[in-house]
């Protein structure tokens, strides 16, 4: 069997297994060039429980499988850099191990296993800046950003309250005709969530064990530098004197209508 035939056979098998989930592009000589598929964790077809995904792109050199293909991971979602790096390292090892044999299906399985193991966003919640621990209840927005449900609820409740407070300050003719629209803290995309349901979530685990703030000696040094600069600038008249500025009134003289600034 020629090289070409063995590759052809490998791709046929992949197409038979993955069907529409795989795309194969060919070069002008009709040689298969790039194989692409998006991989999700195995969650027994429960799509809403898939929190991470990544697109695998395999570039086949003419001499494949006798030499290793070049593999790229694209559009990772919910995965941090170290997780991606680990998967990449495992891919490299797998390619070496399977030199001379078809490897693409092996790669897909390897990535799927890694995703299933870490089917928990490894990125940070942009609201509390902490990660997601086992047992934390979190929400995936339609724009694929992750928040602890507890944090997202806080965001939605408070931004709605602030919006209302701003509206209440305005005279009737200036009030916005638009209703409050919740938006994603990361990308400002409009989102709609059931706040009541989110509110029932417990705070993230990492937040519970509160740690105290401590003033270190480095901090003391910085505070002192700041103080010195303040004194230096104050002596040069460079510090804004709020009281003096506020007391600068605009005096309208009765006669000519000119305004004079007095201190």
């Amino acid at each position: 069997m020629s090289l070409n035939e063995s590759v052809q056979e490998e791709l046929e098998v992949l197409e038979a297994i993955l069907m529409d989930d795989i795309t194969i592009s060919y070069d002008e000589k009709n040689r298969p060039e790039i194989v692409k598929t998006t991989i999700f964790p195995s969650t027994a077809d429960e799509v809403d429980k898939q929190y991470v995904c990544v697109t695998l792109e395999v570039n086949l050199p003419e001499t494949y499988p006798d030499c290793e293909p070049s593999v790229q991971l694209k559009n990772p979602r919910g995965l941090d850099e170290s997780t991606i790096n680990n998967i990449q390292k495992a891919i490299k090892d797998k390619c070496m191990e399977f030199l001379g044999q078809p490897v693409i299906y092996e790669l897909i399985e390897l990535i799927r296993e890694s995703l299933t193991e870490s089917n928990l966003p490894t990125c940070q919640c942009a609201v509390c800046l902490y990660g997601f621990s086992e047992g934390d209840i979190f929400t995936k927005t339609t724009c694929f950003h992750y928040f602890h449900s507890y944090c997202l609820a806080n965001h939605l409740v408070i931004t709605k309250r602030l919006f209302q407070e701003e509206q209440d300050k305005l005279p009737a003719w200036q009030k916005s005709v638009k209703e409050f629209q919740a938006s994603c803290p990361v990308c400002r995309e409009s989102i709609s969530c059931d706040v009541e349901e989110l509110k029932s979530a417990l705070p993230p685990k990492d937040l519970e064990s509160a740690q105290h703030f401590q003033v270190t000696s480095d901090l003391k040094k910085l505070q002192e530098d700041m103080r010195q600069l303040f004194i230096y600038q104050k002596n040069k008249g460079g510090i804004i004197d709020i009281e003096a500025e506020e007391n600068k009134l605009l005096l309208i003289t009765a006669g000519d209508g000119d305004s004079v600034e007095v201190s």
Partner: peptide, 14 residues
């Protein structure tokens, strides 16, 4: 108590 987010930001700033 100071929220942990503030502590985390402060530490990172340092």
């Amino acid at each position: 108590a100071l929220p942990r987010r503030i502590i985390k930001e402060t530490q990172r700033l340092m």
